[in-house]
Every structure is written in C-alpha cells, then in structure tokens.
C-alpha cells in the first residue's frame, strides 16, 4: 500500500484540531491511496498531498501572515523612499505612528500564531508549526518582494543621500579585520552591486533572526495557548 511522505502526514496531523485529526487525516489518506496514486503516480500524488497540507495551513493561519507581510512592505517602502535630505518620512510622524513598524510587532505575531495554533489543536507542536509556518511564508514573501522591487527601488536609492552615504561607508571606509573571517573593503564596488549583496545579506541574516524569533516566541505562545486550551470545554466532537 502507498504512503504519503511521513513529514507531510505528521504536519497534517499536527495542524488539525483534535476532534478533526483522525477523520480528516483518514479522508486525505484514503483519497491519496484510492484515487490520486492510481491516477497521477506516486510522485505527483505526493505533491497533491503536500498541497493539501499547505492549503490547510494557509486557510487556518493567513490572518497572522497578511498583517506581518503588510508591515514588512510598508516598512521597506518607508526605508527606501526618503526625503531629498535622506531623512525618513516616518521621522516627521508622532512616535505612536512608528510603533506598528517595530520588529516587536512582527515578533508579537509569532507569539499570537503560536498561541492560537496550540489553543486550536490542543497540541504544543500545533502552535510551533503555526509560528514556524508564519516565518517560512514571511521569508518566502521577502525573497519574492526583494527580487521584484530590486531594480526600481535601487534606481531611487542611488540618488538619495542616505543610501549614497551607506554605500560609501560600506565600501570606502577602512574596515577593521572582520570577525567573519573576511574584510569586505571593496572601494571599487558600484552602487547596484553593493546594494544587491546588501539585500542578499539582509535576507539571510533577517531569515536567521526570524527563525530564532519564531522558534522562541512561537514556543512561548504555544505554551500560553496550551494553558488556555486546557481551560476550554471540550467540543461536542471530542467530548
């Protein structure tokens, strides 16, 4: 008998509320074995199974992903497009207007996703999958967003004093020996080349930072959600 990928089966099980876990996993497994593998072959049936898992994740947690993505986009736009002096347009706004764009807000969404995930599934792992999934979708979006906006944004950035100063600071100053084992002193590096690698670096370092934040904050949220779930009465299904 054919089996879907073990990781996908495990994720599907962790994603579903306790009262739907057995029946929905059974439905998807039955469809996979009886219809999809005979019709599509094992490899494409595996892809179908993964699509069901990702679809259920997105359907459940899109409400956490969309606000974080919007904050990322707004933050990036304000960071790129600056006043002719190089100052951020955000600086003119009251302090309260800065708060939604703070990294603490994104971290707060990891906590909330974790809490909701474990509350809904009554499983610690359910919350962790919610928070880590939020990170994965956010990071993939950042990669796509960074790629699509690279040239138009760089075109604007190369005529703004803030970004010119950042480029000159990065490429023309005398760097001390680097703790990363290389000296990035590259006085001949052009603006576009510099900002391309600057973006790649931001994606990689930002990705690692968000992975750590989503694991820790997602874990914290999951623990809180689990405590709340234990106070919740059982649904008619699992009573």
């Amino acid at each position: 008998m054919w089996n879907p990928p073990a990781l996908a089966q495990e994720l599907l099980s962790v994603l579903l509320p306790a009262d739907a876990r057995e029946t929905v996993c059974g439905d998807v497994l039955e469809e996979y074995r009886e219809s999809r593998v005979p019709a599509l072959g094992e490899r494409r049936a595996d892809v179908w199974y993964w699509r069901q898992v990702v679809g259920i994740w997105l359907r459940t947690y899109w409400g956490f992903v969309v606000p974080v993505i919007l904050l990322l986009v707004v933050g990036d736009i304000f960071n790129t497009f600056r006043a002719p002096s190089g100052a951020s347009y955000l600086d003119r706004l009251p302090m309260l207007a800065h708060l939604p764009l703070s990294p603490f807000v994104a971290v707060g969404f990891f906590v909330m996703a974790g809490a909701y995930g474990s509350w809904r599934t009554r499983e610690f792992a359910g919350g962790l999958v919610a928070a880590l999934g939020t990170f994965v979708v956010m990071w993939l979006f950042m990669v796509i967003w960074g790629t699509v906006t690279f040239y138009p944004f760089a075109h604007v950035q190369q005529s703004n004093p803030y970004w010119i100063q950042a480029w000159q600071w990065s490429t023309h100053r005398a760097h001390p020996p680097s703790t990363f084992g290389f000296n990035p002193d590259t006085p001949d590096e052009g603006f576009l080349n510099w900002i391309f690698w600057d973006n790649i670096g931001a994606l990689l370092f930002g990705g690692v930072a968000m992975l750590i934040a989503s694991s820790i904050c997602g874990g914290l949220g999951s623990a809180l959600g689990l405590i709340a779930a234990r106070q919740r009465p059982a649904t008619p299904h699992n009573a």
Binding site: M1, T23, G26, L29
Partner: peptide, 12 residues
C-alpha cells in the same frame, strides 16, 4: 468505523 485503506481511521 475506519477501514484498512484509511489505516483504521474513523469516518465522520
């Protein structure tokens, strides 16, 4: 009840 094709998992 469940069936072998569903690894014994119940149907709703």
């Amino acid at each position: 009840s469940g069936t072998p094709i569903r690894d014994g998992r119940a149907r709703r």
